[in-house]
Each structure stands twice: as structure tokens, then as C-alpha cells.
Amino acid sequence: MPPIPTVTDPLLRVRDLRVSFRLDEGTVRAVDGVSFDVFPGQVVGIVGESGCGKSVTMRAVLQLIDPPGRITGGEILYRRGATPIDLTRLSPRGRLMRDLRGAEIALIPQEPMAAFSPVHTVGAQIIEAIMLHERVGRDEARARTVELFRDVGISMAESRIDAYSWQLSGGLRQRAMIAMALSCKPRLLIADEPTTAIDVTTQAQILALLRELQRKYDTAIIFITHDLGVIAQMANYVVVMYLGRIMEEGPVDEIFHAPLHPYTRALLRSIPSLNSETRTVLPVIAGALPHPFNRPPGCPFHPRCGDILGDRCATAVPALHALGPRRAVSCFLHSELAEPA
């Protein structure tokens, strides 16, 4: 008889997260009821087009939302020891949140150039971080930094740690950023489009590196991208977002081989492929992403949906309906469940 599977508790559990930006022109509901789990050692891919709320969700997890933005609802439960901590209840500048940020939850930001200070060497910034979080002396922190640089595949590590970020090529800068993020052995690594601005060849190198480091340290990773090819190669579990909401989530193989939501299906169809024929028209998603101030009523995707069921889609908001322990979809084709009006 096969053993009964033991379900480990999630490391991070996001529940009905809501983040708004209140601007003069109106309120932007950047994240509008997002829920997902991250288990230890797992890579969760979050995919969606620009502006769908991926970065804001992650900044909320790190408590880095600045005014006029505000978390208006939901929970972010982070498991540390026996009892989970709700990060939304912590003071963003408080001691505990600062300890968690960097030491337990690390971010590889979308703009590595902005993440490093231009007036300090890359090495100095990593050494400071290690000294602060691990309470070790400078010599040891320096030795650890050199070792980290080797780990992320930077040759001539001893001399390169004394370089400024602007002296490094795009690929090396991204590697240094990964070294910085890993410097305190985080349990959760958030990579926000870490390869969007670089060549495919460098991207392939960075993805291979992240896969290798993930295996080596067994870190949980949240990997954000708008590139479905990258998601397919990196993630175990995929969350598909559109206009601040989750359309569908599930194991990577099901998302690519048995997608349920019309948006996921349309996205998958629109990828140009190396195996396609020259000069054939690509299937597209009709219309355009609405402006953040003009959220449609009903299902956020209904104005562009090819499978629309009529009035219901245009008036009620489909709720994220669990189809199994690790599979959920928000679409009236699959479940009648709606958000409370």
C-alpha cells in the first residue's frame, strides 16, 4: 500500500490580498483578492501581462508598499517556527519585518541597476548585509562574499567583488544581485522578472544558475515573469494573474497541457514558436488591457473573452474556486461561485 502523503505546511500563505493606490484621478485596485500558497523548496511562477499586479503583490509580501498605496485587506501568513505570522499586521519599519526582509525573504528586483548603490562597490554592499544579518566580522563576511560570487558563476571573484555595479555587464550584474539575495540564506526568494531585460543566452545562463542554486539550498522561490517559456522551464506551480486577480492556478503541467481559463488558453495560443510556419497570422487576444481606472464590472476578462457566457460574466465577479487541493480557477465556465456582490 502506498504511504499516505503527508502534506507539509506552506511557508507562505497569501489569502484574499488587496492593495489599492489612491490617486487624484481615482483608485487603482492593483491587487484585488489574491490567494496562493508557497511550499518549502517549491518554485511558484506568477505569470501575467504588465500591470496585472505581480510586483505589487510581492512588494506587499515584503511590506514595501509606499503611499499612496495601501494594503486594504487580506492576510499574508509566513511560517516561522510553529505559528505563522501575519505580515500585514507587522509594522513595515519595525524590527521583526526588517529582520525577515533580507535574512529570510529576499528579493531579486526587476531593476538590478537601481538595487545597487553606485557609490559603493558591489562587494561592500553584500559584506555589509552579511555582517548585519549574521553578526560576523568583516573578514569572514568578505570570505563568504567571494565564495558566493563563485557560487553564482562570477569568474575572478576576488577582484570582481571590488567592482562598482555600473562596471559590470548586464549578466554579471544580475549574478551579483543573486549573490546579494542569497547572502543570508533566505528561506524564500522572490525573483521579479530577473531576466526580462537581458539576451536569451544570458537568460538561459541565469535560469540554469537559479535552478542549480534552488536544488543546492532547497530555497522556495516565487518567480515572476510575463514569459510563458520561462515559466514552463522554472516553475513547479503556476499562478496566472489578470487585472489584479487570479484567473487560474495549478501544477505547471496542468496549466500548459490542460488549461481551464479562457485567458490562460488565449495567452498560450499567442506565443510565437520556433516550430511555427513563417508568415502565419498569430492568434491574438482581442482588444487591449483596460486602463487601471477603468476596470470592467463582472469578470475582469469578460470584454476580451471568446467564451463569454452572457450577462453573468458581465455583471458578477467569478470567485477563485478550488477544484482540488492544488488547482483553482475563477471562471463561470467551470464554477458558478461568485464574489459577494
Partner: peptide
């Protein structure tokens, strides 16, 4: 060929290539 292998295949059943182009 190396440029082609570097393009991530949008299918989790196709494993990424091991022969990654190194250097710059």
C-alpha cells in the same frame, strides 16, 4: 544553434537544454 537552444520552450515536458552557451 546555441541561440535557438537558449529560447525557453513553452512546454514543461520539454526539458531545458544542458548545452548552454557560456560567456559573453
Amino acid at each position: 544553434a546555441a541561440l535557438m537552444r537558449a529560447v525557453p520552450v513553452p512546454d514543461p515536458r520539454v526539458p531545458g537544454s544542458d548545452a548552454i552557451l557560456k560567456g559573453e
